[in-house]
Design a protein around this nucleic acid. Structure first.
Ligand code: FES
Ligand code: FES
Lengths: 139, 139
DNA sequence: GGATATCCTATCACCCAACTATGATTTTTC
DNA sequence: GAAAAATCATAGTTGGGTGATAGGATATCC
């Protein structure tokens, strides 16, 4: 149940963009310096995020990245689904059975249950929520 | 956010034992045949489960494994914590900060939140719940 | 035109999960 | 007592995936 480093770094990078929302673009070199991640690696993280419509990149000098939507409209689930290709705990977590034993598999309901719990936990938080330090739904 | 195959197969194996609870021991060769997992691999899965006090193995001919506690007293969280050494999504999911940026890291609350959601989802289910096909808490 | 930055593709290196292999020990059965 | 059946223990191998780097193409500002 480990989150990939890609997802971890991507989230941190997006938080940097969120903190700068409305104040123009942020070059990757800035994020790299602040978060201790190489620019080249950050570039790779930005690609799926751009394709998912979460960020826009402006090329050239004085260029950089910025959020395409306000931080309160970007759910963590969205960005993690873009960064982590396989966010589900197993292959059999989806609605359609993907392994041949699914008919009589007593474990399958567990995978589905777990997957839903994760999705819900991620979708109830937005980038804005994280900016205000501390999830709103904490016990 | 993938669950390891170890955790997946271990859960399925334990479900087999749970289905046979009270009816004596089950040899790994039986489970191997029913679940399509090699005996040698199953042996490795049983080791941490034994150390965690969830199963007992009886050696020799007519031997096998059996649950040490009734299925309704074994929470999924217990067995997954025994099988998956790192069940937490990141290194910074725990109560004590483990990375040097934890002081000002806006992402940390997310890891903690996610980790708790997973733990809760796993701890609210027992093996018995899974035997009755379908998690009790489903929306 | 030069500097800066994103965009794009390819490739490497390494770690670790997944499994195999081998053998020792314990217990039952004949 | 020997053979068979099973767990227990540890070592070794291997493949795939992740993390990361390299090099260059393209776009923009000054
Ligand atoms: S593991 Fe695929 S259905 Fe049970
Ligand atoms: S990633 Fe370690 S505290 Fe943020």
């Amino acid at each position: 149940m480990r989150l990939s480093r890609k997802a971890e770094c991507g989230t941190r990078a997006l938080l940097q963009l969120a903190a700068n929302y409305g104040k123009g673009v942020v070059p990757l070199s800035d994020i790299a310096a602040r978060e201790g991640i190489s620019v080249k690696y950050l570039e790779q993280l930005m690609m799926p995020l751009r394709k998912a419509g979460l960020v826009t990149g402006t090329r050239g000098a004085l260029g950089g990245y910025s959020l395409k939507k306000p931080p309160w409209e970007i759910r963590i689930g969205e960005l993690l689904r873009a960064l982590e290709e396989r966010l589900e705990p197993t292959d059999c977590s989806g609605d359609l059975p993907s392994c041949e034993r699914s008919g009589r598999c007593k474990a399958r309901p567990l995978w589905v249950h777990l997957s839903r719990a994760v999705q819900r936990a991620l979708d109830e938080l937005t980038l804005q929520d994280l900016l205000r330090q501390g999830p709103p739904v904490s016990d």
